[in-house]
Simulated scan of single mutants.
Amino acid sequence: MIPINKKELTSIQILEAALRLFKNYGIEKTSLAMIAKEVGITKPSIYYHFSSKEELIEHSFNHILRNYKFSDFFHVNELNKENFGEKLYQFGLDFLPTTEDDNYELIKVLNEFTLLSNRNNNFKQRLVSVQFEFINGFRNILLKGIDEGVIKVSNVDNYAQLLALVIDNIARSIMIGFNIDYKEVWKETVNSLLKEEEKI
């Protein structure tokens, strides 16, 4: 592990404090003074690390996206003929923000950046690339399922998009407190891909 110096450590503390406050108060309502107080430094000290609130927001966005990769939640290499449906179902449940866990916090902050993306083309492009990463990840899962002989669908691209849309919308529904039986919805989605004898 590469040791980090005091400046880098403080920068990380500022980023993490900013993300906590963005989650609780929103990006617009979070001030640099609030972030400085959270870290235990003066507001002018922030400018030693970030030239403006906009730069801090940009770095916060990049920081959070490093922890939001398809492969962190859906492990294609763990799927095989015997476990395909169950594993895919479980990966989806583990991804969904069901409690105040790290993923809940992650998705809550990402929703803040989604709101900003209407006015910030860089955020919009990055979020679109994350969506494509999820679509491509699901595409690889479906191709593996076809190789294993457990998937009944042939239009892989459409079903990869369907999986990405369903999991994203279930996550958003949970975040806003929309009470649905998300486990059953995800199970039906997974089962719609599988051959009859492979259904869970």
Rank of each mutant, 00 (worst) to 15 (best):
Q131S: 15
I176H: 08
W186H: 15
L19C: 05
K6V: 04
L65P: 00
Y25E: 13
F178N: 15
F91A: 00
K195W: 13
Q13L: 14
K108V: 05
I141K: 01
S51D: 12
L65C: 09
A17R: 04
E100K: 13
S117Y: 09
G85E: 01
F73H: 12
P44I: 04
H75V: 14
E148S: 02
G177W: 07
N77L: 02
N179F: 03
K152Y: 04
L194E: 07
E55C: 05
F74R: 05
G145M: 04
N67F: 15
V166K: 00
R126N: 14
A17F: 05
F61P: 06
N169A: 04
V109A: 12
Y68W: 14
N118Q: 13
G40A: 06
A18I: 00
I135R: 01
L93W: 11
I35C: 07
V39C: 01
N155V: 08
S51C: 07
Y47I: 00
D102K: 09
I2V: 08
I57F: 06
L142S: 01
T10Q: 09
G137M: 06
L110P: 10
I135A: 02
E148N: 04
Y47K: 06
F178D: 15
F95G: 03
I170M: 13
Q13F: 10
K43C: 02
K87N: 05
A171W: 15
I151K: 00
V76P: 05
R119M: 11
K87L: 01
K108D: 13
F22I: 03
H59A: 13
F123K: 11
N191F: 02
N122S: 14
S60T: 10
V109K: 04
F61G: 05
I180Q: 15
N136S: 10
I167E: 11
N158H: 14
Y182P: 09
N67E: 15
L79F: 07
E133M: 03
F22S: 03
S52N: 03
D181Y: 13
F84E: 10
A17T: 03
F132I: 05
F73C: 03
E78P: 05
E38P: 01
E133N: 05
R172T: 10
I174K: 06
S52K: 06
E28P: 02
E16S: 00
H63I: 01
I4F: 09
L65E: 00
E86W: 02
L162H: 15
K7S: 09
L115G: 09
F132M: 12
E197I: 06
S31D: 11
I170Q: 12
V156R: 06
L9Q: 14
K144C: 08
K195I: 15
F113C: 00
Q90S: 01
E86A: 03
Q13I: 03
K87I: 00
G40F: 08
A160F: 13
I35V: 09
D157A: 02
S117A: 14
A17H: 11
T189V: 02
I135K: 06
T114M: 14
Y89Q: 01
H75I: 14
Y68N: 07
A164H: 10
I2A: 12
L32D: 09
Y89L: 02
V166R: 11
V128T: 12
Y25N: 14
N191L: 04
Y25W: 12
K23Q: 13
E148G: 01
I27N: 07
D101E: 12
L65F: 03
Y89T: 02
L9E: 15
L88F: 03
T42R: 11
N80Q: 07
N118E: 13
S173P: 05
